[in-house]
Write a protein that binds this DNA or RNA. Sequence first.
DNA 1: AAATATTTTTAGATTTGTCTAAATTTAATT
DNA 2: AATTAAATTTAGACAAATCTAAAAATATTT
Lengths: 220, 220
Amino acid sequence: MNFTTSEENYIKAIWSLQRFQTEVNTNSLAKELQTRPASVTDMLKKLKTKKIVHYEKYHGFSLTTEGKKVALGIIRRHRLWEFFLSEKLKFGWDEVHEVAEELEHVSNKKLIDKLDEYLGFPKIDPHGDPIPDNQGKIEIQELLPLTEIVNNKVVEIAGVGNQSTNLLELLKHKNIQIGTRVEIKKRFDFDNSLEIKIRNIPAFTISEQLAKNLLVKYGK
Amino acid sequence: MNFTTSEENYIKAIWSLQRFQTEVNTNSLAKELQTRPASVTDMLKKLKTKKIVHYEKYHGFSLTTEGKKVALGIIRRHRLWEFFLSEKLKFGWDEVHEVAEELEHVSNKKLIDKLDEYLGFPKIDPHGDPIPDNQGKIEIQELLPLTEIVNNKVVEIAGVGNQSTNLLELLKHKNIQIGTRVEIKKRFDFDNSLEIKIRNIPAFTISEQLAKNLLVKYGK
DNA sequence: AAATATTTTTAGATTTGTCTAAATTTAATT
DNA sequence: AATTAAATTTAGACAAATCTAAAAATATTT
């Protein structure tokens, strides 16, 4: 089945929200998509008839098995284009998301599979997120927010909590990237800010807000 | 200014038709876009308010200077993607057009300029059409009479030597149009007639006289 | 130049995706 | 449990892009 750009954006947004909150609701989806709750309700009805979401009015919603499959297809396209933009066209890792948002809606399957092959079947996009393969299989990554890590343990940044320009701008300024190794040196109870240390750079503090959005690989 | 996918398709189609027929009319544009004349009229009104076309009702239309500029931007994106698909992703030359039709509507300027650079600033797309540069400059196509082309090379008819009714009648009868792709299969020295092949039609011969008046696109 | 044919435009509907404002349902609080 | 607050949905409207059918303008033919 084919989906409009708008439908795809809804499906993708539901998928994203489902990862962090089991319960997805109309208001949070509206906020995520920068639209109105009434518009979300309208689209949910449509996606229900297409068997993409389970939905009973006033009682929340979630992606069906088919819906998840569709979502992973969109995520695959998005992340492959991000990889292409970063690796081949030399875009900064903080610039790729926005462009990939547009490219992801070109849904020609052959195009995406050939792009995948051309890129060498990459497993991880420039933000550290796993890229689903052409069967929709995705490697599950165990990532924890930096706030959960004990002091003095070196961990590697492997993802970010969201893709907002504001967050990415801040990370760029602070020179934090995917792959950067950090350790927490001190915690300040006053505002829950953290003093962190990156190799070759003097220690500096970051806000609780930021720390929550830095997802790190947790050594098993 | 930004344009919808639909607007861009109209602009591109007008540009294409303008190349071959000085006079573009509602019906031919409707046919080109596989839509209805009434829809064309609606869109023309819209494009007029955006200063993309000169248009007086019942009296034809054409792209403004601005409209031509926009058209060349779309053509540039289309042809760069075609080149990418063919050169990098190894699509067949007959498959690239369809995919490029979708990619061309992603109008991020930085993306296109970086893609151009990555591809080595190509001048010609896989169909032999020139690619406008980032200033919108396009190399004028060199057209050659079919008689100058070697055997077994597929070329596209892009013009005719003269506009006589007799010639046009003959072309119509033989089902040869602008855009028709032909290749020469055999040459007969006796009268310099050519056996030519058009896709889906059995090969047939044409006179030297006619071949001299068929102008074709010559890559490079 | 009158009649006919063709082309183009208008009028009014339809679909998609959105909105506001009001109504309804569910959740939270007293 | 009744009231208030919050979340969600409905009703009705709108803009974009399309369509059909009919009307209007232009072109062609007799």
